[in-house]
Each structure stands twice: as structure tokens, then as C-alpha cells.
Write a protein that binds this DNA or RNA. Structure first.
Length: 289
DNA sequence: CACTTGACCTGTCCGC
DNA sequence: TGCGGACAGGTCAAGT
């Protein structure tokens, strides 16, 4: 479940590893994972050089010198793992690692680079990669609909509040998860920030005070920043570009802590359902209105 | 129109 | 031990 901090962690890893490398081959056996035509791949991907790696919301953008870009959405179980040729067949991975020899049975696409390979793994096959002209990226529906980046310095609390308020009759958690309102927030950081602001996830937006939304915005930025610092959250599948787990969940206040004491009031954390998702709350700190 | 639910997938876990 | 079913949760399409 790569959300903003996980995708950002992968981006920073790939930014160190990929620029300057040439894409020499592409191999896929799951068409939905990479639906571009062979013709496009041959003309604009094979033989082109990687210029930079960017992120928008939960999507990675790999810019090529062909003026095309590879955009990759990892959805829930996607992984992008870089291996040098030597390590591809080598050992040397810790025994508690989530990933061993590559390719494995969840490998969907293999990008052959100069003396390395980039593996796009996806157990549940929900993720996708697409090759597009770089200037057209912002025009595709997915990108056009996206709300602002929550960590951008120009995105202020009043902008956040204004956007949230457009959905007065929805539960606050559903609105936080809506990528058109704010981009990049998923289940983990929605729960964590709502706990921080002491807001029950099922509270309708119209029943949340401005001061609470202000607090929510502050907490959202804090949990996202802390998670980026910790390399993201590894629950089941997430690993970074070099196969390492993230450690944010050891700092999580509610996510996956059902049955354990609230770190603020010691009441028991419960798991409920909100916005169609498993949702973690302290029923003492977070009271529904 | 606003909002909610189901489909897309596979691996894991739980109860019988 | 095997087996069916619930669950995991990002996004889009379909339903209310």
C-alpha cells in the first residue's frame, strides 16, 4: 500500500540509481501491467536514457531523453526494485528480507539497464506502468483530477480547509482519502492524522470545526514527514528501490494497533470500518459527533 | 448530483 | 490438514 511517503522513498532511491542509465530491454508477461504497444516501446523506450525520477501523488514518473516518460502506479502491492547484474543472481540478502532472488513469481515487468535491472513486481496485479510523451502527462485524466501535494510549501492550512469543506456531507476520512481533494493520502496516514487531531473518521465534514481541520492539516504534514524520514511503512509488501523495509509503523499511533492501549489516554484502540476501509481509532480520544 | 459500493487480483489467516 | 471465506486497500466504474 504505497502512499505518498513510500512512493517518495522509492523515488529518492531511484533518483540515486537510475539517471544516466540506458534502457536496453523490456520484458513483460502481464499485459495490463504495461499496456503500451510494442511499437511505442521500441521507438520511445528502448535505447533511451533516464534523465530524472519524479513523483506526483502516489505515482512515479521516470523522464527519458526521448521526451517520453514512464509513469508507474504501484497501487497496493507494487514494488520497484533495482538490482545490479551481479546482485540479480547473487545471494547476500538478509533472511528477514521481503524479497529474495529476482525475478520471482510476482515480477510483471523487467527493465534491462546498462549493467542492471529494474524489476516491477506486483503480487495483486493492480499496478501499472505506462509510456507517455512527457508533455502529455499532466493532461491525462488521472493527473488532471489530482488535488495539491500536501507537503508543498505553497499549500496552506486555509487551502486545505477550503478543499475539505467542499464535501460537507461526507465522513472526514472519505474526504481525506479522495485524491482530488489532497493528493497522496492513503489509509495509514489518514488514520494516523485523524488520531493526532482527535477527530472520529466518521464525523461529517460539516460537523468538524475549522480549528480541528487546522490541527488535522498540521498532523497530516507531520506524519507524512516523519514517515518519509523513516523510509515509509512496511506492513506486508512495501520495500524501497533497494529492497529495504520502512520503519514508520513502529512509530504509528493507531494503525494496526487494535487491542493495544492508546498512547495518549490508554484506552484500547479499536478497528472499525470507515469509507469502506479498515480504520483504527481510539474511541475515547476520537468521539463521533 | 453527491455519495457509496463493487470489481480488479492474489496471498494469508481464521474457523470449522 | 484441508477448505471456504473474509480480508488486505488504491482507483475507477457502476449503483443508489
Amino acid at each position: 500500500m504505497p502512499e505518498l511517503p513510500e512512493v517518495e522513498t522509492i523515488r529518492s532511491g531511484l533518483s540515486r540509481l537510475l539517471p544516466g542509465l540506458r534502457i536496453e530491454s523490456v520484458k513483460t508477461d502481464w499485459e495490463k501491467s504495461f499496456p503500451n504497444s510494442k511499437n511505442d516501446v521500441n521507438r520511445f523506450l528502448i535505447g533511451s536514457k533516464i534523465v530524472q525520477v519524479r513523483r506526483r501523488a502516489k505515482v512515479l514518473i521516470i523522464d527519458l531523453d526521448s521526451k517520453y516518460s514512464l509513469i508507474i502506479h504501484l497501487k497496493m502491492t507494487g514494488q520497484l526494485v533495482f538490482r545490479s547484474e551481479q546482485a540479480v543472481f547473487g545471494a547476500g540478502h538478509p533472511s528477514d528480507s521481503l524479497i529474495g532472488k529476482l525475478p520471482d513469481k510476482s515480477t510483471r515487468v523487467i527493465f534491462g539497464l546498462d549493467s542492471a535491472k529494474l524489476f516491477f513486481n506486483d503480487q495483486r496485479k493492480f499496478g501499472w506502468a505506462k509510456l507517455l510523451p512527457t508533455i502529455e502527462i499532466e493532461n491525462i485524466d488521472f493527473f488532471k483530477k489530482l488535488g495539491p501535494e500536501p507537503l508543498k510549501s505553497t499549500f496552506k492550512p486555509e487551502h486545505f480547509i477550503e478543499r475539505i469543506r467542499k464535501r460537507p456531507n461526507s465522513p472526514i476520512k472519505a474526504v481525506l482519502l479522495d485524491q482530488a481533494v489532497v493528493a497522496g493520502v492513503g489509509n495509514i496516514y489518514a488514520d494516523e492524522s485523524l488520531w493526532g487531531a482527535k477527530i472520529h473518521p466518521l464525523t461529517k465534514v460539516k460537523d468538524v470545526k475549522d480549528a480541528e481541520l487546522r490541527k488535522l492539516f498540521k498532523n497530516l504534514q507531520e506524519v507524512l514527514r516523519l514517515s518519509i524520514k523513516k523510509g515509509g511503512s512496511t506492513d506486508k509488501n512495501y520495500i524501497d528501490a533497494e529492497g529495504n523495509k520502512g520503519s514508520y509503523l513502529t512509530f504509528a499511533k493507531v494503525f494496526r494497533r487494535q487491542g493495544q492501549p492508546c498512547l495518549r489516554c490508554a484506552a484500547t484502540i479499536e478497528k472499525i470500518r470507515a469509507a469502506g476501509r479498515g480504520t483504527h481509532i481510539c474511541t475515547n480520544c476520537q468521539v463521533q459527533i
